[in-house]
């Protein structure tokens, strides 16, 4: 059995000789895990997926899935993977059932087997009651589920999810996560997914790689990445004007103190629950009054901030910007 299901080595894609969408990306995905590519729009996530699913050829570098080279053995790769694209690709003029059967035909699955699987999958994603309705009548969440079902019709060993909850509301998103987890249990797959939602990466992924400007910045499990930040973050304000950075720094477990512009202190410390009382004690014994205090465990947003120097929200940009970027990429891909 292959340990590493996906191995990418220096994967690069350049559009139009100048636009470097993916820049020497290397990573490996272990059997049975959910591996996530986390990054803002335009970071190169979809281009990476398109190379792995054999739709685009890498300009440089190589990758393999279950030992099959994505360029030289593309057809073997295609047989063992399932793909759920970020767009709604189901044909609106066909019914949900017809759409799954169409996918099955593309994989050459015998009709009898396909029929059984289609019904089973529709049951799993709770669309059995809507199977004979045209997809144009489906809601966004239903379409997502149908896409999931289509991507699973060939019982893939590796499933690719490109932004699986893009454009869904918070509730539907959470429900979709449940479906993904359930389907993974049911079919024992390895999942490679991309997302620009931090919560999604946190909720689903065993390991993530943060990607920005086509490069992987850091890889690890969400826990590891958060822990690597050096523990919890304590924010404290005092009534007095004095600079107490030194006082706080001398408290046990404190690793870093930064005086912020608004006068508060941002403290990085291990074992935040234990350290906080110690800090308060130290300040009080020197006659300072603590007016405000917060203790937070680091989130992926902090991780993101740490490695890219910006918050995820800053990078999302305006809608127009996002569309402009997308159109540019599309044009580039089209050539």
């Amino acid at each position: 059995m292959v340990e590493n299901v996906i191995v990418a080595d220096g994967l690069t894609r350049i559009f139009n000789k100048t636009l470097v969408a993916v820049d020497h990306v290397s990573f490996s995905v272990r059997e049975g895990e959910i591996f996530g590519f986390l990054g803002p729009n335009g970071a190169g996530k979809t281009t990476t997926i398109n190379m792995l699913i054999t739709v685009l050829k890498p300009t440089e570098g190589s990758a393999s899935i279950l030992g099959y080279d994505i360029v030289k053995q593309a057809n073997n790769v295609r047989k063992v993977i399932g793909v759920v694209p970020q767009e709604y690709t189901a044909d609106e003029d066909l019914t949900g059932y017809e759409n799954i059967m169409l996918c099955a035909d593309l994989y050459g699955i015998p009709r009898e087997v396909a029929r059984k699987r289609a019904l089973e999958l529709l049951e799993l994603v709770e669309l059995a009651n809507f199977k004979d309705r045209k997809v144009e009548t489906y809601s966004g969440g239903m379409r997502r589920r149908l896409e999931l079902a289509c991507g699973l019709v060939n019982r893939p060993r590796v499933l690719f999810l490109d932004e699986p909850t893009l454009g869904l509301d918070v509730q539907t998103r959470a429900a979709t996560w449940d479906y993904i987890k359930r389907l993974k249990e049911e079919y024992e797959m390895t999942i490679f997914m991309t997302t620009h939602y931090l919560e999604e990466a946190d909720a689903l992924c065993n390991r993530i790689a943060i990607i920005d400007h086509g490069k992987i910045i850091v890889t690890g499990s969400p826990e590891e990445l958060k822990n690597a930040l050096g523990g919890d973050i304590i924010t404290i304000s005092i009534k007095e004007d004095a600079d107490v950075s030194e006082v706080i720094r001398n408290v046990e477990h404190v690793k870093e103190v930064v005086k912020m512009e608004n006068g508060s202190y941002r403290i990085k410390a291990e074992l935040g629950e234990v350290t906080t009382p110690l800090i308060i004690e130290a300040l009080r014994s020197r006659g300072y009054t603590v007016t405000r205090l917060s203790l937070t465990e680091p989130t992926l947003n902090d991780v993101y901030l740490e490695y890219t120097g910006k918050t995820m929200r800053d990078t999302e940009g305006s809608r127009e910007e996002f569309h402009a970027q997308r159109i540019m990429l599309r044009r580039a891909r089209a050539r």
Binding site: N75, D91, C103, F160
Partner: peptide, 15 residues
């Protein structure tokens, strides 16, 4: 087919 992503999906199958 291309704009809606259907083409890419079909291309990722062994058809």
């Amino acid at each position: 087919d291309r704009r809606l992503g259907f083409l890419d999906k079909v291309l990722s199958t062994p058809v």
